[in-house]
């Protein structure tokens, strides 16, 4: 089985972001970047399938500027076999990303496409589902468990009411949730080896997809600040405050 994994380079999720004073966006210059955490879960899932003998090739694809090579290298160091960078300096909307990925899927013909459930920068949670629509493949989003059964998948999904298990024929699209696995940290020899694995860089223009945005971002602003609070000294004081609040609350 051949697995395609899409990974995104984002502002590291431990960085406290700063909104640019002119409202044009979030400051990304000189900020630490890394692989989107959900993409790491997707790569780990692919590598585990390969280690279990279920997959023989893992192809990593990322879309973005030249430095996105770094996150592809990270995935190669985790155990993937080769990488593709669809290079563009333009910020792209999720629909365009999905269209570019659909072209890659068409070329590569993978049996399974793994993605993270969302990127922690735009928080969209779109691309896997859109790719599934564009390739007319079934989807399993927010996966916390993936079982391969011949030429079908059994995926357990994290949903609002708990979990649910669904069945999908392959090829299929699966997006990874947090509890799917614990991504490994690549050992240094693997990091060194990753540099010798094939990595194709291809301009986004080559795919014949209209890259222009549909939406206009008018403004990016910081969230409203909360007023300073008070510290109480006893349980009795706190209980009184809670009791007052609760008694004043209008019932819906």
């Amino acid at each position: 089985m051949k697995i395609l994994v899409a990974v995104k380079r984002v502002v590291d999720h431990n960085v406290r972001i700063r909104v640019r004073p002119d409202g044009s966006g979030v400051e990304t210059n000189g900020v630490r970047m890394s692989m989107n955490p959900f993409c790491k879960h997707a790569v780990e899932a692919a590598v585990q399938l390969a280690e279990a003998g279920a997959a023989d090739e893992i192809v990593i694809v990322s879309i973005g500027p030249k430095p996105a090579n770094d996150v592809i290298l990270t995935a190669l160091a985790m155990g993937a076999h080769r990488g593709i960078l669809v290079e563009t300096d333009q910020p792209l909307e999720t629909l365009v990303i999905a269209k570019l990925l659909a072209k890659v899927v068409e070329e590569e013909q993978p049996d399974l496409v793994l993605l993270g459930k969302q990127a922690v920068d735009d928080d969209s949670n779109h691309v896997g589902q859109m790719l599934a629509a564009l390739t007319a493949l079934p989807q399993a989003t927010f996966a916390s468990e993936i079982k391969l059964d011949g030429h079908a998948l059994e995926v357990t999904r994290e949903v609002d009411s708990g979990r649910e298990t669904i069945g999908l024929p392959l090829p299929a699209i699966v997006t990874a949730d947090l509890r799917l696995n614990t991504p490994r940290n690549a050992a240094l020899p693997m990091v060194m080896k990753a540099r010798s694995k094939p990595l194709a860089v291809r301009p986004a223009a080559e795919f014949g997809v209209d890259l222009s945005p549909r939406l206009t971002v008018e403004m990016v602003s910081p969230p409203p600040e909360r007023a300073a609070g008070v510290t109480v000294n006893s349980v009795a004081e706190l209980a009184a405050i809670i009791a007052t609040d609760v008694n004043e609350m209008e019932a819906i």
Binding site: R16, V120, L215, V217, V220
Partner: peptide, 11 residues
């Protein structure tokens, strides 16, 4: 966006 640390206004 960014875990609620910024708000994006779009048309």
């Amino acid at each position: 966006i960014y875990a609620g640390n910024a708000l994006e206004t779009v048309t």
